[in-house]
Design a protein around this nucleic acid. Structure first.
Lengths: 347, 347
DNA sequence: GTGAAAGCGCTAACAA
DNA sequence: TTGTTAGCGCTTTCAC
């Protein structure tokens, strides 16, 4: 069923039917009712492409997920983030176009998307510390919001991010308070800005406590179990093994735990582990009630907000960049042995 | 830059330029070269919507992710699956439209997508044991492939799935071989078919060994850490606690481990745990070399294949349903104490 | 308050 | 081999 057929059926012009459907005021109320009913009855939906052609708007937002290596792993939080964004989109009549792209040809990806007129704006994922996409998108004139931030740029842009630096600063302080001096940081790839910020938070806490920084115990790589195992294994077998691990992502932590078990050490006794994960985290301690909070919902909320921001920008492209820094809620999962309730990090 | 402008620039008709670009044979080679160069130079990309309108094809595939509760969790494997599918799509000039929908209005979602002409076909995720979507999509006439299978239907349809029943049958057998008699199954929601199949595999292995089935130790719920903790905690504190856990997904396993620690038990000694996870898994034992295989790549591969199948169906709608059953590769992660190398499950 | 007609950017008959 | 023309389904002036 298309407009023409619907109009013929109603013995009205396409124009009137269109106006009635789109809420234009000049349509007589009785007519509108008639149109609405018929549309309902015949399950009429305006054709997206035709509408887009006529209005010049795609009513579509692109989400672009870069993969940095051939078999790169997709960040598990994407699912939640996108679920949140999707909610905002459908509430506003937008659709979500997902593109997975290799870093090598990512510039082309953005250019194509803009040139094809496939999207009205994009959300950028996994920003690097120094990311040329900010410049590129501003050149193209495609509205965008970054999920995360870029470090090495002076250009203004819109973003939403969790406070990674603060979260890691606090987690490091917690381990220091527990008496640890040699704390390993098992991180994501430091070329990605979130990992860089996490490292900064760690470094600041260490320095503030007068503890030395040792690049040998700060290891960044893809968020895989293998990374966790290899890194922890290597460190535990080194001359001067750490007494604690601060780990990005519970997937990596699975590997760290395995290495600890493999070394015959007892977690929470011989060695402490703190996990930060955007998606899932909990306190592991001896409370009778589980101290658990999933932060999945906050990642989803970030998606909702990011989408909202982007739609606002599209509405008013001249508006100043929008930014949003979310404090991580209870995102520290710990297996530290003598973890005291008072030491718990609330955000 | 659009077709019209490009054609004027080249002093050719739009038709000729279009033909040159689309590889029609009747264009003179010299002309084609001229067109191709100009297109390249001006970074011309045909407008997707206009093309779609003219051809009647959307060149877009929809992926629909149902959420069953308000704050349902998005299955972490979606990311990998979609990354794989995306690869197939871009190689064939298709785009990926992602929709997250509530189960309550999911029928409308599919109807809308079809009526709006937004997609040429869809991939269905998270099929239920008895899923009306098969019937619905066949009624609508929208080509589709299911990621997973539906149990209670006689209708033919196309699907790709991992062999969940077999994986859980083997995992259960492994635990039985290790001497366990009371094995708890901490599963996903049994209304979802994958969980149902996993349960079947478990039940068959138990029955084949002459062991009783006890519905009190088969608990299905959302794949969250909380589910794992609560279920395991309850079972460990019951009159007749299990000596082993077979767990769907490592996220759930995190909770199970926590409950075990909380009960003062030692994992792999007092109690055994086997984890099955489509996305990530490994053997945890005492081998010097980590026995680890990530199956993320196989989920991604499933995405590649599913997309390929769907495009084939769209090409030839009259073809017979395509199906693909993937054997899980080393998808059992174990923490079983006396796990012998010979007991390892290869697929 | 409603209709006729032009046009969004492209493809595909049909002509030449 | 190339050009002309008529749509694809919708919105939006401009008349009435």
């Amino acid at each position: 069923m298309n407009l023409k057929e619907l109009a013929e059926l109603l013995k009205l012009s396409q124009a009137t039917v269109s106006r009635a459907l789109n809420g234009y005021p000049e349509v007589r109320e009785a007519t509108r009712q008639r149109v609405l009913e018929a549309a309902q009855k015949y399950n009429y939906r305006p054709n997206t492409r035709a509408m887009g052609l006529a209005t010049g708007k795609a009513m579509t937002i692109g989400h672009i997920i870069p993969t940095y290596s051939q078999n790169d792993v997709v960040n598990p939080v994407f699912g939640e983030f996108i679920a949140g964004a999707s909610q905002t989109y459908s509430a506003n009549g937008y659709e979500l176009l997902l593109t997975v792209t290799q870093t090598s040809d990512e510039n082309q990806t953005y250019r194509n998307l803009a040139a094809k007129g496939a999207v009205d704006g994009v959300i950028i994922h996994s920003p690097r510390k120094d990311d040329s996409r900010v410049q590129l998108l501003q050149d193209i004139g495609l509205p965008f919001v970054i999920h995360g931030r870029v470090n090495d740029t002076t250009l203004p842009y819109s973003w939403i991010d969790t406070n990674n630096r603060r979260a890691f600063n606090q987690a490091t302080r917690l381990l220091i308070d527990l008496g640890h001096q040699r704390i390993a940081l098992i991180n994501g790839p430091v070329s990605l800005n979130y990992a860089w910020l996490r490292q900064q938070g760690y470094e600041q806490a260490m320095q503030a406590a007068g503890l030395p920084l040792d690049s040998a115990i700060m290891i960044g790589d893809e968020l895989t179990e293998t990374h966790g195992y290899r890194s922890a294994n290597q460190l535990l077998n080194s001359e001067d093994p750490p007494s604690a691990f601060l780990v990005s992502s519970y997937v990596v932590a699975l590997g760290v735990r395995r290495a600890i078990a493999h070394a015959g050490l007892s977690m929470g006794k011989d060695v402490s582990v703190i996990i930060h994960d955007d998606e899932l985290s909990y306190f592991q301690n001896n409370d009778p009630e589980p101290q658990f909070t999933a932060t999945r919902s906050s990642v989803r909320q970030a998606g909702v907000l990011a989408a909202r921001m982007l739609l606002d920008i599209i509405d008013d492209p001249s508006c100043a960049p929008l930014t949003e820094l979310l404090e991580a809620q209870l995102t520290i999962g710990a297996s530290t042995g003598p973890l005291l309730p008072s030491a718990r990090i609330k955000h």
